[in-house]
Design a protein around this nucleic acid. Structure first.
Lengths: 193, 193
DNA sequence: TTAGACCCTTGATTTGAATCAAGAAATTAC
DNA sequence: GTAATTTCTTGATTCAAATCAAGGGTCTAA
């Protein structure tokens, strides 16, 4: 049982001594999920926080027309969670689904709270990592209503092109906030340049 | 020097013993800013985190066309900060501006890090408060590209109508992601219903 | 190997918000 | 109190993306 992907990720953001990491690993559980399975559905209460060792998850919303909108995709070394629901035992409006077969590290509420309150670098890691998500969301929100679909796709190519290889296009359209038809036309247009 | 607004806010989210609060207050500085003043500009490094005792701040982005998009407005008992820049000493792309004369509590980097690492309920408050912002941003991102301008304005009326009293309409338009003309027409249409 | 489901592309049409333009109203400054 | 600036409204026009519709491609499972 090694945890080097997790340790690498923690140390990418904060100083994380070995002794603290040894306190953290027993709090984790390694799980497998199949492509298509849900880890969280709207109306559920989130019971775990997930670290991705392998695979891809998406977090998405279903709007009033029944359409799905992807908030983000997370791959290896990313975390996926809904902490508001997790910390308050309140139902969430968000969904989390595996888009590939995944290997995950999961941590439950009791252990997570233990880690945050008893392992200081773990708390600081979470604050920092959350803030990065926060910043990304703010930027995307600022762009969402301004950029044209073509600009959004170009930005996606520049910043997240690795996702293009592993996800179907209709999922990317639901992430960029356009119809699959529009995405298809943009790709045709840009490809021919 | 009382801090009851801040204490109320902290206790709204976590259990915050008096002894911890007494450790926190000396870390704060009370400041006044005039309407229109900037607390953070794109390209700056964020040096302080602000708690609003009175007034209204906005956080906004300037996009490639030079247009401003408001990410959110914060009023009394809200926090306004850009922690990615603050924690990494990196330049930010976000702006923070006072939309009214404000009275704020400010905390600098050294003191904030001290508080997070030495006052456990302060760390937990920040994690929880951040997550609420995070959740709000995710929901708004999911809605931004789906809802019509009229739906956005109706949602705003339901959820944030208190802001309507104190902000000019063009700021609200820049928050909802539409032109002032469109907002004006929607208001006319809805008002006559 | 083939049937079925799912995904992607392409075309025709519609529509609603942005843009352009101008004037009215409200606020600010002197 | 008046001028100047800013903000808000209304109208006419344009245009780009959604919608509607259908056909082709790809993958999967029996």
């Amino acid at each position: 049982m090694t945890y080097y992907l997790l340790l690498n990720e923690l140390r990418r953001i904060v100083i994380f001594p070995d002794k603290d990491f040894l306190k953290a690993t027993p709090l984790l559980e390694r799980i497998q999920v199949k492509k298509g399975e849900h880890l969280l559905k709207a109306g559920d209460i989130s019971r775990k926080v997930y670290f991705i060792e392998e695979g891809c998850l998406r977090q998405y919303l279903i709007n009033s027309n029944g359409e799905e909108r992807n908030i983000y995709f997370k791959v290896e070394c990313g975390w996926c969670s809904e902490l508001v629901s997790f910390l308050n035992n309140s139902p969430t409006e968000l969904n989390i689904q595996a888009l590939e077969d995944c290997q995950l590290l999961a941590i439950n509420q009791k252990n997570w709270i233990y880690a945050v309150t008893h392992i200081p670098p773990f708390a600081m890691y979470f604050i920092k990592a959350q803030q990065q998500t926060n910043y990304m969301l703010k930027k995307r929100l600022g762009e969402a209503t301004v950029e044209t679909p073509e600009e959004k796709y170009t930005r996606f190519l520049n910043e997240e092109s690795h996702l293009l290889q592993r996800l179907p296009l209709f999922q990317i359209a639901a992430y960029l906030g356009m119809t699959p038809e529009t995405l298809s036309r943009i790709r045709k247009k840009i490809g021919s340049k």
